[in-house]
Computed example of a mutant assay.
Amino acid sequence: MRLLDIPHRGRTLRGALHLPADTDAPVPAVVFCHGFGGNRAEFGYTFVRAAERMAAHGIAAYRFDFAGCGDSEGEFEDLTVSDQVAQTTAVLDAVAAHPAIDAERVSLLGMSLGGLTASLAAPLRQVRSLILWAPAAVAVAMSDEGAKRRAEAIAEFGYDDFGGLPIHQAFVDDAEDIDPFADAAAYPGPVLLAVGSEDFVLEPGVLERYEHAYAGRLDLHLFDGVGHGFETVPARERLVELSAEFAARHA
């Protein structure tokens, strides 16, 4: 593993590049997008383990912190989905330009809000494959009740307190212009979708809308008995291996 910084709009995005051992030829790669308020290690260091598993399959992996998160520069209060999409496309371009990477074989993996971000970035760069862990489409497609509660919180406090992290009006305004399913459907390649049966973001109809968006390109895996963070050792091991095998199959 080696550290790799990428500039974006006056900020430095910091990340870690995992390369397969003993290879001289350019290799395929997967860019990892973490969830809301997370970092490039992700829950239980699962991104680290997944990156190492990718490398064992002959695939490079780049894990980075979004602006305002982890070690990257920027302010968390400025977070919007569109900005994260722009960061992701910049990272894809930088990774594709790396001398160790085959520019024609770069894929995306995203968790939660990072999954939503990856699904929106994928059509902009026509990545090789797309891996979504519990994508948080509800972040931009909230119920009327949820949107009302968020608006009231922002009006009273200046932000909505989401698990100890603030969501500001800029995030809400940006989300109004995003259709998480129609916008994602423009990506024509293969998609792996992994979700827990008890996931709080798995609102009624979400899976059906992803199935419609990705039509025959979707490889859906429902993990029984776990929630948003795939909270058991077997579930996380299965998630890591499924993702590595999928990336290798479509590299």
Rank of each mutant, 00 (worst) to 15 (best):
A248I: 04
V206Y: 06
R125M: 13
D177L: 11
I167K: 04
E176C: 03
P234T: 04
S243F: 08
S197T: 15
K148R: 15
A97D: 15
E156Q: 11
G58V: 05
T80F: 11
G10V: 08
G164M: 10
T23P: 06
R150D: 03
A136R: 03
R150C: 08
G35E: 09
P188H: 10
R2N: 14
D183C: 06
G44V: 04
D174H: 04
L4D: 11
L120R: 02
A213H: 01
R40S: 05
E176I: 00
E104G: 15
A136Y: 10
F43L: 12
D161S: 13
G216V: 05
H8M: 10
A67W: 00
A96F: 06
D102V: 13
Q169R: 13
Y187I: 05
P26E: 08
F43C: 08
A155K: 11
A247W: 10
Q169M: 08
L116H: 12
R14E: 07
L92Q: 09
A67N: 02
G229R: 06
V85I: 10
S119H: 01
L120N: 02
Y187H: 09
G158A: 06
R238G: 02
A134H: 00
L79V: 15
P166D: 11
P234Q: 04
A16D: 12
L13D: 01
F246P: 00
A194R: 00
V31N: 00
I131Y: 00
A215N: 13
E75D: 14
G38R: 04
V140I: 10
G205C: 15
L13M: 06
R209Q: 14
E208R: 14
P166Q: 11
A16V: 15
R217K: 13
V30Q: 02
I167Q: 09
Q84H: 14
R11Q: 13
I59E: 00
V201A: 10
L113S: 14
A175S: 09
Y214A: 06
G15Q: 03
M142Q: 12
V191L: 03
R125Y: 06
L79W: 02
A61N: 04
G70C: 08
Y159S: 09
R238E: 07
L113P: 00
Y159K: 02
G164F: 04
L165Y: 11
Q84M: 15
F171H: 05
P188G: 11
